[in-house]
Nucleic acid binder design. Sequence first.
DNA 1: GCCGTTTTCGGCCCGACTGTTTTCAGTCG
Length: 573
Amino acid sequence: MKNFELARMFEKIADALEIKGENQFKVIAYRKVSRILKDFPEDIEKVYREGRLREIPGIGEGIAKKISEYLKTGEMKKYREALDGIPQGLLELLDIPNLGPKTIKLAHEKLGVKNLEDLKRVIEDGSLAKLPGMGAKKVENIRVGIEMVERKGGGERRFPIGLVSPIVEEIVSVLSSIKGVEKVIPAGSYRRCKETVGDLDFLTIAEDREKVITTFTGMPMVSRVIASGGTKASVIERNLGIQMDLRVLPSESFGAALQYFTGSKAHNIKLRGIAKDKGLKISEYGVFKGENYIAGRTEEEVYRAIGLVWIPPEMREDRGEIELAMEGKLPEILKLEDIKGDLHIHSKYSDGADTIEKIAKFGKSLGYEYVGIADHSRSVKYAGGMEIDDIYKKMEEIETLNKKISGITILMGTEVDILQDGTLDYPDEVLEKMDFVIAAVHQGFKKHVTERMLDAMDNPYVDIIAHPTGRLLSGRTGYDIDIEKVMKKAAETGVALEINAYYDRLDLDDTNSRMAKQMGVKLIINTDAHNIGMMRDMKFGVCVARRAWLKSEDVLNTLPWNDLKKALRRWTS
DNA sequence: GCCGTTTTCGGCCCGACTGTTTTCAGTCG
């Protein structure tokens, strides 16, 4: 699939044109296409073959031609032209804070700067400061920007949502308990439920602004205060080093500010364009007709003022949600309360921390109708994989517990390993006796994983493939796999693919989940919990599903067990 | 480069801040 490849090329074209000083709207158009391609849920090559490129909003005649050219010939003239005369090292300078394309262009043309080393040199010898429009302070800011980039080792630092979530909860709880504080809401990509966040934005309405701000900057978790004024403050959190901003707002603009600071940027830009067409203006202070404030107290008000229904934050990425909201046709996306159970939980029988009884009771407290105990299979020695004899013991225990505990059904499952030769770690006679079977790759990440997964799906007892790409957000790239082939086979065989809700996995991600839905693949959200606390991670899996616009009926574990049974392949075939 | 119930040409989000300026350009979120 060439989606990402093309996205990267257009991104580079945009960077290069920006430095060359091309019309900025052209640059924006290329960036937009890059973003669209990055999370487009279909193979762009397929769209091209079917002649549908122009149907994608944001792709016009020019870009469609360039995509076609590349897919046909493997070359893109525009790409070569745009990058002509632009050294690679120059493009990388765009990542430096306080240094933008105009200054890069200036330094390149007047001082021959080609890369970071050159840039440092012209800062040191003072020649950069002498250029027109430049000065000592600007140069100093650029120097600080370089330091920041070098400290974090390049690229922007992002944190898995599950790591920042406890911090957010604590801050909301501390600030909410202050007298006169009406609301504390985390905005930004955290509110949009992205799998990772770069920083945290908190918005609040309070009588005593100063009290809120000093409480915020004085919390023990704060290691450094960057700025602290009358209406806002910025701090660095101690453990992760994540930046956190707080804003105290008047209630009449709270909705507008919440809308604005929730983003995404692309969503907001489109919204403001629509407002403009209607002779209105949206800013973080409200919706205005000329000088007159007409809305902004709540988000609903803001959206309504420009003729839209309120849009869930998870959908705000300018992927077509605004058009649907205009027609009042937004889909009803999955809610956490729709989830009726979790089929991927490890117990003490393998590497889980808790007994099956404890898991069942906790599941019941979450409002579940069933929990599925899926322990590791025998060859996964490091994770206490179960021998076949133990499986029968476990079955007996589950039978007993099901009689003892009412209101929840415990299901007997396994997370059976897909071995390096593509066979499964238990014989069919064992798998047959399970309520459900999850198959997963835990070893040999680079050894023809695609074929092994396809083989596993040919086994009639396999119901679910766990964490289908194997990636970890903390850094592991995952299996060497052709995920489209896996999805295609899953759609054919009726095997479900798992959205793994563990915060470091979130695999499938939202783009892949969208693609899977498009291809008719069954999906299920499981936590892969190794202790009962982790069963709460279900919310992160639901985030992925909501960002993928999945509806309740797109996710298997919104069904009661009797219906889920009919949806799992083993019980239908 | 994209796009059109005001437009096939002339628009394209908004505001804050900073530093360099004497009215504004660049960068950021």
